[in-house]
């Protein structure tokens, strides 16, 4: 995966990890989102890309790499849909 296609955080989103969970504040939409443990891991390490994220998750958790990768990509799609991730078209 090239650097251009890696998911990027929306600059309108402020965030902080509190007690292991990422809290995202979408300033323009006025929306708060809280991520679970693996959601937080993905959010904090977006620059790794879905393949490496899935491999790392599968090493530590009871899940196969393909299943983890599918879930990572679905999660990123959900973040894109909610505006937390930039859609990459700009």
């Amino acid at each position: 995966m090239s650097e251009e296609t890696l998911p990027k955080r929306n600059p309108d989103v402020s965030w902080r990890t509190i007690e292991g969970q990422a809290v995202l504040i979408h300033n323009r939409l006025g929306e708060i989102q809280v991520l679970n443990d693996l959601g937080t891991y993905i959010w904090e390490h977006l620059e790794l890309g879905p393949e490496i994220l899935a491999r790392n998750i599968a090493q530590e958790h009871e899940v196969s790499v393909p299943d983890a990768q599918r879930d990572v990509e679905e999660f990123m799609q959900a973040l894109r849909g909610s505006g937390a991730l930039a859609d990459g078209t700009d």
């Binding site: 708060i32 679970n36 443990d37 999660f75 909610s82």
Partner: peptide, 17 residues
Amino acid sequence: MKKPYEKPAVIYKERIE
């Protein structure tokens, strides 16, 4: 020993109006 797997997810969402 591997940890139990829980899909990555948004667990709370609120619109502030």
